[in-house]
Design a protein around this nucleic acid. Sequence first.
DNA 1: AGGTGGTCTGAAATAGATTACCTGCCTTTA
DNA 2: TAAAGGCAGGTAATCTATTTCAGACCACCT
Lengths: 328, 328
Amino acid sequence: MSPTIKQIASIAKVSIATVSRVLNNDKRVTEKTRKKILKITEELNYRPNIIARNFVKKKSNLIGLILPEISDEFFTEIIKGVDELTFAHGYYTLVASSHKYESLDQEIETFLRNGLVGGIIILVSSLNDKIKCILKDSRIPVVLISGGSNIDGFDAVSIENYGGAFKMTEYLILKRKYKNLLHITGPQDNDDALLRRKGFEDACKKYNAAFRIEFGEFTQESGRKICDKLLKSNSLPDVIFAANDMMAIGCYDSIKAKGLTIPDDISVVGFDDVFVSKYISPPLTTVKVQIEDVGKTAAEILMRKVREKNNHKKIISKISTKVIIRNS
Amino acid sequence: MSPTIKQIASIAKVSIATVSRVLNNDKRVTEKTRKKILKITEELNYRPNIIARNFVKKKSNLIGLILPEISDEFFTEIIKGVDELTFAHGYYTLVASSHKYESLDQEIETFLRNGLVGGIIILVSSLNDKIKCILKDSRIPVVLISGGSNIDGFDAVSIENYGGAFKMTEYLILKRKYKNLLHITGPQDNDDALLRRKGFEDACKKYNAAFRIEFGEFTQESGRKICDKLLKSNSLPDVIFAANDMMAIGCYDSIKAKGLTIPDDISVVGFDDVFVSKYISPPLTTVKVQIEDVGKTAAEILMRKVREKNNHKKIISKISTKVIIRNS
DNA sequence: AGGTGGTCTGAAATAGATTACCTGCCTTTA
DNA sequence: TAAAGGCAGGTAATCTATTTCAGACCACCT
């Protein structure tokens, strides 16, 4: 059995309170006693039982990171960013994604209530009222990673979706001189998708460019299907702006299958700058999002909230985007 | 404050023991009492305090997953596989990677000793004696995910590195009729790299094919550099078998920069079948590893060990590989 | 009717650490 | 020199849920 504070105390012939004080750097202990106790803890290779400590302190050095799923690099980067920052503060990161066994709502509620974690970072594609309600009366700090709309009243980190899409569209119209644009959106209940679409539309309107909208699903498959349909019709746009890179890649599949070339016959651009994008042929022009920063920033805000309990000012942080020009 | 078992008990006018029994499905409670208590717990929206529960039970429903780093899809897949399986058993997954703040050894030791987690899955590139020592006298179950050599005495999941490399080499020699092969290894202290090399060499020897070895680092950069050097010399092999896909991609960069074409001028194959591999041009022939299964299998073994405390039979599980033939 | 056995419930101990409060000693100061 | 104050360190309560042991109660059998 691992040594406990009690054993240390009995060996050192002091009370457990004194040992605890030494371990917690309480200064009300003489140097001599401190040294003696430290020596013993080292000899026994003692490690305080974190669970017991968390239990009495009624707080936890665990951070919950709730994701809709763990699948693509987007989430990896977030996990990495969060882990790196929280670890530096002595916290561990608990990763939970929605499973077939439990809905995201339930999962969030469980986490908020069971005391396991001292704070939560939640990535949601859209904020429904139910989740909002659950979050409102949370006893532990919460930070959202969200598309960016509708997050009033919560601490949140979001991506500059609107601005990124606007910049890209501006580039397509002004620099590339495209007159006829088509945007493939993400799922209609997804905030990122919504704002990207809005950025696209507003830019088109501003510069009086003709545009169309198709509704996709953020999947490669949906990009392919929509593009297939498009190529069968006889009204091709100059450029397809897919709301994420995976759909853009789906368009590549479809276009190449038809024997057309990118960007000569038709141009395709994306959003996200996923890892593959620079390797496909031709390399994809896209909007880069520094995903790791999203995780880091969220963790930073959370750590601040965990420490300063009384600070109730809401923080909304936006991670900026950048148009990456390649050859598509 | 969240309701506690005590409050439930006082409202229901029963003892806390009875409430605890109901919550733990102990059958020694009359249906009437059970119903009454369940009704109250639901009204109060009671959730048992997991930390307290773990504390009294002296066990944890947390699983530590220790990775050298969280970076590429390889790790994502592992996290996903582990999380999915452990969650189904009521466990949560704590992801920890080596940070600049702590070495992997220390991290492992901390996890093993502080009681936070009830079991650990460790992914290591190679097993040094220090880690072996730490693991040997671990009080909690440990499962390794490892290259595959030198894991006697531990429960482990490994990839069929040797067999995969052997099969690929066999394919290159017998089907593609290459006579002059070159292998770029991974880091020399990496077990996966070691076994892949051995599989390659043994196959070459078996079929009397000429071969050379270059020493890489598993990075795209190292693949590119080695290939640059190679192309400057005047003795090109028929095929470059890179010990992982990222180095193969590095070779692509180098070869394309020289204006040569794959596979006409020189062929390149890899190992791993990362996501990009089928999108690059030409699509990369490689050895596929079902990474998610690695995580799942490791979690499965761990769950079994956590449950059946007395079962000390060591399990070593090997995840099989498959040669994926594309156009490189 | 009294004994036996089984079922349901409660009281109390327990886990490992933190911490409020108290004691006792030593030093300082009037 | 006695009171006051500060400091080191001890005592004991506390956190929540589990679990052991014992007791209460009822039914059934002889």
